[in-house]
Nucleic acid binder design. Structure first.
Lengths: 229, 229
DNA sequence: CAGGGATGTTACAGCTGTGTGACGGCGAAG
DNA sequence: CTTCGCCGTCACACAGCTGTAACATCCCTG
């Protein structure tokens, strides 16, 4: 699923300069020239990260950052402040306000992208890293390994993700559409029958240690992962 | 793992000047512009050394140094104070407070690196630099040497840091981004593919004694160091 | 029992991610 | 100054994975 970025910057030149690099980096960017517009976009579809200019026509970006970080709803959205050189004092206040990082103008698009990645990495929610085990079938997210009764099982990335999702959501039927959303990510256009193929590949991998019976078909509905048939 | 340094300095010019030399000297540097940010970084991942500016926007660096040296948890982290010329009196107080060394601005990066080495040498706990050995592959942080089955292996500083990090964090998958954070340091912005190249160089070095299989690729996720394939 | 929809299975062409060699730059060493 | 070594980036090659179509098989329904 594409990472959504809200770019709040009144300088059109900078916005245009960033458009292409951010898009090439795989980010879905939405732009605003002032805080008023930004607020509207924020409510409409909350982004995963906000690039916030320090100087804005209506409200100070700094003030808005403080507001965002104060609200329990928006406080977890990371903010990178864009500051002009010579606003060192502002920069300090920016971090003080709760911004996650700052970039000093002029900056290279490459540096910005690198910082975005770093911030997203740092603020990423801690995903379940606990090993899961069912009937001797073991999946360890930390080492990224799957084994059946101690014997190593090898599979592709998609099959691994599929299995991880199944093992953490047992005894529940999922439609092909739900699996596409959860495992492939939303906003992907893929045929539903593709799920069948990956189910097949997963079963084939699990069959090596006889664990393929855990992946069950519910005719007319979808698939289920369960110990009981 | 690379020696981690926390640089607390509000002057961006100085931070930029130090970034490259410190990185090239093999240190993973994290930066903070004020004590508040520094505290956060300190808690997140304790560094091996702190470079502390005397004048800071929020709290006096001197006060913070005193606090650090008073706490049993942080008192063993060496501190080098960065002082402006003519603050001789401060310097005395700095040392009095428990700082391990001081450097007077302006200073050359080379001089700073030399002092860092000296301080680390002086304060290096005998216990924290344990040699690591896996399947006859041996890395000794004290002598900074790597050998496979007794035969010496030569590699560049980055490959050494990478290997050290891997050997102290086995059986765990790291993304390229995480490796950049941990081995290169958070404030160095390089392409993620650069990691691939250094992995390649590391493997090439290890291949001399047939230990290259320990560095494993996890397609779609990153790299892993492990005895088991 | 026949028909038809749903699912299993296989093959394959395209694409993405990774391996690999080369190159220019830069600082250190001499 | 020159030489050397290391670093970051790029371009290209290749292997593995992905999504889709086509065909086979299964199972429900009437």
């Amino acid at each position: 699923m594409a990472v959504k970025i809200l770019l709040v910057e009144d300088d059109t030149a900078i916005r245009e300069m960033l458009q292409l690099p951010l898009h090439k980096a795989g980010y879905a960017v939405r732009e605003a020239g002032d805080v008023r517009t930004a607020k509207a976009l924020l409510l409409e579809d909350p982004p995963d990260l906000i690039l916030l200019d320090w100087m804005l026509p209506d409200t100070s970006g700094l003030d808005w950052a403080r507001t965002l970080k104060a609200s329990p709803i928006t406080k977890d959205i990371p903010i990178i402040m864009l500051t002009a050189r010579g606003e060192e004092e502002d920069r300090v206040r920016g971090l003080d306000v709760g911004a996650d990082d700052y970039v000093t103008k002029p900056f290279s698009p490459r540096e910005l992208v690198a910082r975005i990645k770093a911030v997203l990495r740092r603020t990423a929610p801690i995903t379940s890293e606990e090993p899961v085990e069912v009937e001797g079938l073991r999946l360890d997210p930390v080492s990224h390994r799957v084994s059946g009764n101690g014997e190593a099982l090898s599979m592709g990335p998609t099959e691994y993700n599929l299995l991880h999702f199944f093992m953490t959501h047992q005894d529940r039927v999922f439609t092909r559409g739900q699996l596409l959303d959860q495992v492939w990510g939303t906003n992907v256009y893929v045929e539903e029958r593709t799920v069948d193929v990956h189910i097949r590949r997963l079963r084939k991998a699990l069959a090596l240690t006889g664990h393929d019976h855990l992946v069950q078909t519910v005719r007319g509905s979808g698939y289920r992962f369960s110990q009981t048939p």
